[in-house]
Amino acid sequence: MKVIKYPFIIGFLTFTLFPVFWMFKISITPDRLLYSEGIVAWPSNTTWDHYYAVLIEGSFPDYFLNSFIVSITTAALVTIFAVLGGYALSRFQFRGKIALLIILLLTQMFPIVMVIAPIYNVLTYINLVDSISGLILVYTAFNLPFACFLMQSFYDGTPMELEEAAMIDGCTRMQALEKITLPLCLPGIGATLGFVFTAAWSELLFALMFISRQSQMTFPAGIMNFVTKFSVDWGQMAAAMILALIPVCIFFAYIQKFIVQGLTAGALKG
């Protein structure tokens, strides 16, 4: 088992990192060498000019901040609602449940391009077009069905007996959920948070369609704007992409704790 483990890990790492390495290489290659040197593993000369251009000359720090606010708020809202909604779907049998599940699933199936114009009208109606608050609401709504299914499946995988025992011992349902089930589902909550955060962090289509003010633009929309405005400056775009990866890596490193821990040790004994 041990012997085959490491080649696999190295294989996964290579597949994952090689394209990122290649982008990084492009981001530090001076423009004049990009085409002239052909395919080389490392350019004969390197430069940080592209990073400088992105960070200083563009509005990327603003985009970063907007994206961060949007992603963290969306992730928090979605996770709270999904923790509640998933619980209802997992632990209760009730009239209309099947119909509700079907509707939730249907929302995932219709191509996004077809709902952009109608959503724009809704946002205009509540006066939130062209602001990150509107974007947060839309992202929350679109991430909820999946997050709810996900939490439901984590509850389903948690033994119900512990919770029932707690309720027999006099806990209310909410206390049993908070003290028994949620700690067991912490990996699931971590996964949901991480998932929604990245979904909001990398979403492009809604951001492009609903936001036009520079001050409200998110990171992907900012990069896209950048591409169309200055033709394609590959070095700068590669630099912007490498920069975009940093916050998500940090966030994932943090979220990992929840996914890795799995606070289940001792649960059945205690």
Binding site: G157, G190, I259
Partner: peptide, 8 residues
Amino acid sequence: LAALRSIP
């Protein structure tokens, strides 16, 4: 992975 981690 999250599912695997939740197995007691």
